[in-house]
Amino acid sequence: MTRVRVTAPRSFHPGGPATAGSITAGGAAAGRTAVETREAAEESDAGQVFIRSLIRSQLRLGIVVAAGFLLILLAFALLLGLVPGLAELRIAGLPFDWVLLGAGIYPVIGLSAWLYVRTAARNESRYRDLAGDK
């Protein structure tokens, strides 16, 4: 039984079916398709280094964003626990801790998600530039 390595989805080219054997509009060198060129680049030693680098950078990004979010959440909890009387404070009839969690955490979640998506896209763009993908 042979191992099959799936590296990318089949590409779609206008005017033709979505197959791995379709020739790109720019015409690949010596009749090679974009998928074959990408697979060859990924199979090379340099391609493997690029892929491992991308995976490490995405993992590092996920860990940094998650750790930053947890630190902010911990800071909110410490603020409520260490400042006397803050938990009993009311703003517009609502307890301050609810307001802090409702109005303070959700923007942090949104900002964390936005930063993660933006940085992950930049990492992937850098990978494509290094790997020679268009």
Rank of each mutant, 00 (worst) to 15 (best):
V117R: 09
H13I: 05
I72S: 07
V35L: 14
G62Q: 05
R60Q: 01
R122P: 03
L115N: 07
T19I: 01
T119C: 02
L59Q: 08
L111C: 06
L54F: 10
A66K: 09
V35N: 03
A30C: 09
A66M: 08
D45G: 15
S112G: 03
D133I: 05
Y127I: 01
F12A: 00
G16A: 03
R10E: 06
P17G: 10
D45K: 11
L100D: 01
A121W: 06
L86K: 02
L71Y: 06
R128H: 11
L80D: 06
L101K: 10
V65Q: 12
L82Q: 10
V117C: 02
L59N: 14
F12I: 02
F69K: 01
T19N: 07
L74A: 15
V65E: 08
P17N: 10
W114G: 01
M1K: 09
A18Q: 11
V6W: 09
G26H: 13
I55P: 02
R52D: 11
E88L: 02
G93L: 00
T7A: 07
G85A: 06
R5Q: 12
T7R: 11
E124S: 13
L100K: 02
E36I: 10
G21L: 02
V99I: 10
A20Q: 04
L115G: 12
A41K: 08
L61P: 06
A46P: 02
S112A: 14
G110D: 06
A87V: 09
V99D: 04
A25F: 08
P9S: 00
M1C: 14
V99W: 03
S53K: 09
T19M: 02
E39M: 05
F76K: 02
V64F: 13
D129T: 05
I72W: 09
L59V: 13
Y106G: 00
I55K: 15
R10Y: 04
T24R: 04
G27W: 08
A75M: 13
M1E: 13
L71F: 12
S22Y: 01
D129M: 14
V65N: 13
A41R: 09
R52K: 11
F69G: 04
G110Q: 12
L74V: 15
H13Q: 06
S112C: 14
T7H: 07
E43F: 05
G104N: 05
L74H: 13
R122K: 07
S53H: 12
A20W: 08
E88R: 07
V6P: 01
